[in-house]
């Protein structure tokens, strides 16, 4: 059984559209019914443009914000957003790495105190000397120098701060780690180092993870499976080789074609998406992607496609509907 099971997860926000005193009320469907599994020790990569619901998904699966519908099961137990003692105890096993490491650290505490904080919270009986030792191990494991223990977050570089966050997240050896754009705020030269560190640590500690990024190359490097999100829905999901070599969904195809790879330049034309960028408040009927899709058909404007299995992967697109009658309509 999968470590994390997510079924038909939804999260909507009530918003008021701009325009006068009585702005129109509307629903922002940040996550609109997604299902996926994360196996023990494996990494699921989640890609998509900003605003597609990736970060909301991250907060939902950890129970940081409540869902409107659907279920999340972690190791057989339901994940709630009740923030009670049981919820706090569950933090031992699931942790998060943030996009902005400086924002996620307390400016007034030395980093060693912050790395050791999960131990203070969850194992208050631990002797201080043992805790110090454990912090030193963690710092060494993420490549921080021993003499940096007393430093404050603003005295470190961006990459070092992210290492502090990683060390803190790993302090209790969690089974599951959510990485929300862990390198997008870092310099390109530092990104590879931090990614390699995460990979090494995963090989050593064997935690499962949900890896979120808008950068396909990064996701490809880190993931065992990849899910592509568009306007709160998963449009394609499968092993990275399949997704990146032979994308089936037109949106995935456009994303993959935009990866700047010199070797591939001759073989594939870059697909430029038409139309307005997606707006989660004003979601189109039918397939949410149809206004920008180069191969949109009539059915795409009326009927939302289902996520259907194709060998090792799943695709939600009418081009790949297996039912023959839909094929016929498409041909006309």
């Amino acid at each position: 059984m999968a470590l994390l099971r997510v079924r038909e997860l939804k999260r909507h926000y009530d918003v008021r559209l701009p325009g006068g005193l009585m702005g129109r009320r509307a629903k922002l469907k940040a996550v609109d019914g997604i299902s996926f599994d994360v196996e023990k020790g494996k990494t699921l990569g989640l890609v998509g443009e900003s605003g597609c619901g990736k970060s909301t998904t991250a907060k939902l699966v950890l129970g940081l914000i409540p869902a409107n519908a659907g279920s999340i099961t972690f190791d057989g137990k339901p994940v709630t957003a009740s923030h009670d003692a049981a919820w706090r105890a569950m933090r031992r096993r699931m942790q998060m790495i943030y996009q902005d490491p400086l924002g996620a650290l307390d400016r007034r505490l030395p980093i060693a105190d912050q790395i050791g904080e999960p131990l203070v919270i969850h194992e208050p009986g631990l002797a201080a000397s043992y805790r110090r030792e454990r912090v030193a191990e963690l710092m060494a494991a993420v490549g921080l120098r021993r003499d940096q223990a007393g430093s404050y977050p603003h005295e470190l570089s961006g990459g070092q701060r992210q290492r502090v966050i990683i060390a803190r997240a790993l302090a209790l050896s969690p089974d599951f780690l959510v990485c929300d754009e862990p390198v997008s705020a870092l310099d390109v030269s530092i990104q590879a180092q931090v990614l390699n560190l995460l990979e090494d640590l995963r090989a050593k500690n064997g935690f499962a993870s949900l890896f979120i990024s808008h950068d396909l190359k990064v996701v490809r490097q880190m993931s065992n499976r990849v899910a592509v999100m568009y306007l709160g829905l998963i449009v394609e999901e499968g092993p990275p080789e399949a997704i990146f070599h032979d994308p089936m969904h037109p949106y995935t195809r456009a994303l993959v074609s935009a990866i700047p790879t010199p070797a591939r330049r001759g073989r594939r034309e870059r697909i430029v998406l038409q139309g307005d960028p997606p707006n989660p408040v004003d979601k189109p009927a039918g397939c949410p992607f149809h206004p920008r899709c180069p191969s949109a058909m009539d059915i795409c404007r009326t009927t939302p496609p289902k996520l259907i299995g194709h060998g090792p992967r799943r695709v939600a697109c009418h081009l790949h509907d297996d039912a023959p009658e839909t094929r016929l309509i498409a041909a006309e």
Binding site: L62, L64, H83, W87, R88, A89, M90, R91, R92, Q95, M96, Y98, D100, G103, A104, L105, D106, R107, R108, L109, E117, P118, I121, H122, R168
Partner: peptide, 26 residues
């Protein structure tokens, strides 16, 4: 709204700890 308090909550800290040890000194 800022990250540090949320991050400490996400570690599983109690409200006493979040408000007493992190927000108050800040």
């Amino acid at each position: 709204e800022q990250g540090y308090a949320t991050a400490v909550r996400d570690l599983g800290a109690s409200p006493w700890r979040i408000y007493g040890r992190h927000i108050l000194p800040n």
